[in-house]
């Protein structure tokens, strides 16, 4: 898979949750270009085209980031903050997916600029439904962000 043609960046530390999510996405044929990051550091490296992902380009962001909150190394909220405070990445839609629906998380998440907040349902059916809806909405219905760099380039090209 071309790292520059990633539709979804899935950030979760639980392999089980990852497998379930992928299973659900596959059922909707949305799982073709998904990159999985297992912790906050990996996620940041990916999004900021650093570390092992230097060949990535800011002009080709993923269409969606599914971000879990409880992550090792760098916390989900930290990732969110970094992503949403950098001009190059803040356009990327970030959906917080987490088990908690603690009010404080909601407040902080939205304040940091999360595009959406989903509580992972315990019930698998519900979970599947939620993932399906998510995927369909963000990948099919929603128009993906256009990187500012592309625009400049397009202008330059003219």
């Amino acid at each position: 898979m071309n790292p520059n043609e990633v539709d979804i960046l899935l950030v979760d530390d639980s392999q089980d949750d990852i497998d379930l999510t992928l299973h659900a996405l596959r059922a909707e044929n949305l799982a073709n270009s998904i990159f999985v990051a297992r912790d906050g550091e990996e996620a940041l490296d990916f999004l900021f085209c650093s570390g092992p992902h230097t060949q990535r380009s800011f002009d080709r962001p993923p269409k969606l980031v599914l971000l879990d909150l409880k992550l090792p190394k760098v916390d989900g909220m930290q990732v969110l903050k970094r992503v949403k405070s950098d001009a190059r990445t803040k356009i990327i839609p970030v959906v917080l997916m987490t088990s908690s629906k603690e009010e404080q998380d909601l407040v902080i998440g939205y304040n940091l600029g999360a595009n959406s907040y989903i509580q992972k349902p315990v019930d698998f059916d519900e979970f599947r439904k939620a993932v399906k809806l998510l995927g369909l909405y963000w990948l099919v219905v929603n128009l993906p962000p256009v990187a500012t760099g592309k625009l400049k380039a397009a202008k330059q090209g003219q």
């Binding site: 639980s14 089980d16 949750d17 497998d19 379930l20 992972k120 315990v122 019930d123």
Partner: peptide, 11 residues
Amino acid sequence: RAPLRHIGGFS
């Protein structure tokens, strides 16, 4: 909750 989801999900 997460493990519960997994149990249910994989089943």
